[in-house]
Amino acid sequence: MNARTMKTLVSLACAALVLALPLRVQAQSAIGTVVTLTGYFLNAASLTPVEANYAVYDSQGKKVGQSFRSSATDGYLQTGLKAGQTYTIRVEDPRYFRQEFAIDLPATSKYLELSKDFVVRPMEAGRKIKVTPVPFDVKKSALKTGAEDDLADLVRVLTMNPGANIEIVCYPDAEGTADASQKISQARAEALKAHFASKGVSAARISIKAVTTVDPLDPPPIRPTAKGKRYVGPVYLVITKV
């Protein structure tokens, strides 16, 4: 092979590389970066993992793939989604309240794995849903600052499930006189009912119960408790009709 032939071959190889490069970039861009979403479905009452049927919708409301089911053994879910996109995970299972969870994926050019847990609420008459965090401060009956955010999920659940009626049950913070306990429990229950009504939940679906004794299932602690464990009277939503 003489020098001229060698030069020609090298030139051809370079030209082929230059032509191939944009094709490769286009192919990568078409595939897009995949973000793997992993997590667990958890029972709201016990925070134990549960099996649940769910579907994924994109920002246009179009269903992505088929319906899915979390693991029957440990509630685990895993799904691949596109970076930079917004999705909605919708619980579509008659055993649970209809619920939606927004997933906003960061725009990234690198593979990313995100972890998120989904708390679902069993759909049964008589079932008690504990409102956590308690939307009141100690000894106060007004909704605490930011409680609206904490209650937004419950409001969504109630508006997405118009056939369900509830009773708001409030307990006092400590043993006290019946009058004082009645006053604060009643005021808290009314405040919560008013909040739900203001968010579009029909007041006719909501009854209230003011308890004057401390919650026997979750009584105030006797000894000083550790950080974060300060006691506030529990609040429950009891499902009265499904």
Binding site: P133, K144, T145, G146, A147, D149, D150, K227, G228
Partner: peptide, 25 residues
């Protein structure tokens, strides 16, 4: 900004940022 009690805080290694943990989750 937190909507419940703040349980702990921690400065970043360069002291420019502060992380806080709250009962507002």
């Amino acid at each position: 900004g937190h909507t419940a009690q703040v349980n702990n805080v921690s400065f970043s290694g360069d002291d420019k940022q502060l992380a806080s943990a709250s009962s507002d989750r």
